[in-house]
Write a protein that binds this DNA or RNA. Structure first.
Lengths: 332, 332
DNA sequence: CTGAAAGCGCTAACAA
DNA sequence: TTGTTAGCGCTTTCAG
């Protein structure tokens, strides 16, 4: 900047004014400065600026996701990016891999980079460790799961409602022998999905104790094996609800192996690519990661802009998409 | 930092030493400083540090991808993240959407944040606009596509070789009436894939002029329509090669609509989730985004660490994965 | 409309 | 082993 000022024959502050589009510079001076900066290939150093700038804004935020390679996370990331780009805010993204220790380490890493805000999918048992920062006014929005031990904004899917929708849809097709296949039980959303499903089953007058609940299925293969066992048991269910993508894939494989794809009904939580190309198409409760990301961005920006209202949880509705597998009737 | 120093009753530089794990501090002093910093909930400001630090390292890099919501990009992102996390380097990711203007704007945005390096999928006609920075020693690695107008490291898939593999595989199954369905022709990888495919067809003694080449298929539906038209034409091909995921999906839909999935052979470039669950399973030329990401990270780190060797292009081999659709024989 | 001086939080260089 | 001083590139404040 010094060099540009020297070349343009002006004071350093004038260069700063021009580079930041501040008013109070004559058009002529402005052009001279612009010329000099181009000639020197000069580029403002944001980091140095934020050191002194009011509010210390770095125009960057941190985003903690289960994994940047997970399509659901990718969509959220993209929606956030789009909403924040308009304000010139860049996004640091990182993957948690369901590891509470990583969550803490990554939050610390982002704090050290002085991000203007944090959007995160909590995985640690409690988020109380960020209370100091949050009360020091670090904007923070939790997504997908609500935080524990701290009052902060959250944007979540209506997991229980969506799962209840799945149950009532299967029951409406005439099924009474249902089964629930679920994810790790230490994940809040998984528990919510089970609760919503089971409660709806009870509400329909079916004995909830008669519904097999197989949980802790952390990957495709464990889900596949659980489904195989269930389907070859003495009194197999005629309809299955799977609480998550990988579980759904596992169930689909089991059904295919048994040649039961067109006989046993299936509804999965979470939509996925090519679901409509399967045979039959897979009925799902679709989440809306794009809306989650957009809403999270809006809340974060509001907080960054000084909104000090009470913390709120925003719920994004899920949606039943019928494609065939969930509409298979029970056998006679 | 001043406050911590005051509370611990030491000089500011001693605090700096402790926070950066530098040697030359007695264990006792160290503990006192650590105590004080915890009490004040102090956290080193990386940005301020890099202002003075030798080499001005910010411990962050920029990553420009087609879109962070695209699974292929997500895998690359993840591999990079994993390789760089060990060095405490954080990743800024951004989406280009095949927009050359965005490429330039985002590169500028990252330069303003003084990233230590850049990994990017080039889309602009030429990358000569970054020559000034690159020659000023900004580490830069191009992925997926080679840069134009600048000599810099690149990590790419062997697009032509992979496509040739697809051609020879189909020919080996007895097909002689092949067709090529491709992406936008302004994308380098798409042109390479066509070249590899067509050249191999010629090498096998088939008149390349007899092979329909349908290009500019930028999304699923345009690919679907192109395939429908092709397959319902007078002398339809018995085997199709699609140059990219979305094109493959479009072709799959067309085949399904015509009930020809088990009659017309298909090989697609790029692997995708559930490809093996389709009916028949879809044979693909799989790329290895994880290896691309890892290699790119290694090259970038080497450059950051001062490697000034000549720019090189690293080629990651693709792989033929047979699942059924590519092994369908031609009709009698 | 313009510029000089101070200082953001930190690290390099040097001194004690 | 520890501390002091200068200064990174910028923005703020305040004076012309």
């Amino acid at each position: 900047m010094r060099h540009v000022a020297a070349l343009a024959g002006v004071g350093i502050k004038t260069v700063s004014r021009v580079m930041n589009d501040e008013p109070g510079v004559s058009e002529e001076t402005r052009q001279r400065v612009l010329g000099a900066s181009q000639q020197l290939n000069y580029q403002l150093d944001m980091a140095a600026g934020s050191l002194r700038r009011a509010g210390r804004r770095t125009l960057s935020i941190g985003l903690l996701l289960p994994s940047v390679s997970n399509p659901f996370s990718g969509e959220i990331h993209r929606a956030l990016e789009d909403s924040l780009a308009a304000r010139g805010i860049a996004v640091f993204a990182a993957s948690l891999d369901d590891d509470p220790e990583r969550e803490k380490a990554l939050v610390a890493a982002f704090l050290g980079r002085r991000v203007d805000g944090l959007v995160l999918t909590p995985i640690a048992k409690s988020q109380s460790y960020v209370i100091p920062e949050h009360s020091r006014d670090l904007p923070m929005v939790f997504i997908d799961r609500e935080p524990v031990g701290i009052e902060a904004d959250a944007v979540v899917t209506d997991n229980a409602v969506g799962s209840a929708m799945a149950a009532s849809h299967l029951i409406a097709q005439g099924h009474s022998k249902l089964a629930y296949l679920g994810d790790r039980t230490d994940i809040q959303t998984a528990r919510e999905r089970r609760r919503g499903f089971i409660e709806e089953v009870g509400r329909a007058g079916i004995a909830t104790s008669s519904v097999p609940v197989l949980e802790g299925l952390h990957d495709e293969d464990s889900a596949r094996r659980a489904a195989l066992q269930l389907l070859t048991s003495e009194d197999p269910p005629t309809a299955i609800f799977s609480s998550q993508n990988l579980v759904t894939f596992g169930v689909m494989r089991a059904l295919k192996e048994l040649g039961a794809s067109k006989r046993v009904a299936l509804v999965g939580f979470d939509d996925f690519t090519l679901a409509d190309m399967m045979e039959p198409g897979v009925t799902v409760i679709a989440q809306h990661p794009d809306r989650i990301g957009k809403l999270a961005a809006e809340r974060l920006l509001a907080r960054i802009d000084g909104d000090h209202g009470a913390a709120q949880t925003y719920v994004v509705p899920s949606e039943l998409i019928t494609r065939g597998s969930g509409e298979l009737p029970p056998p006679e």
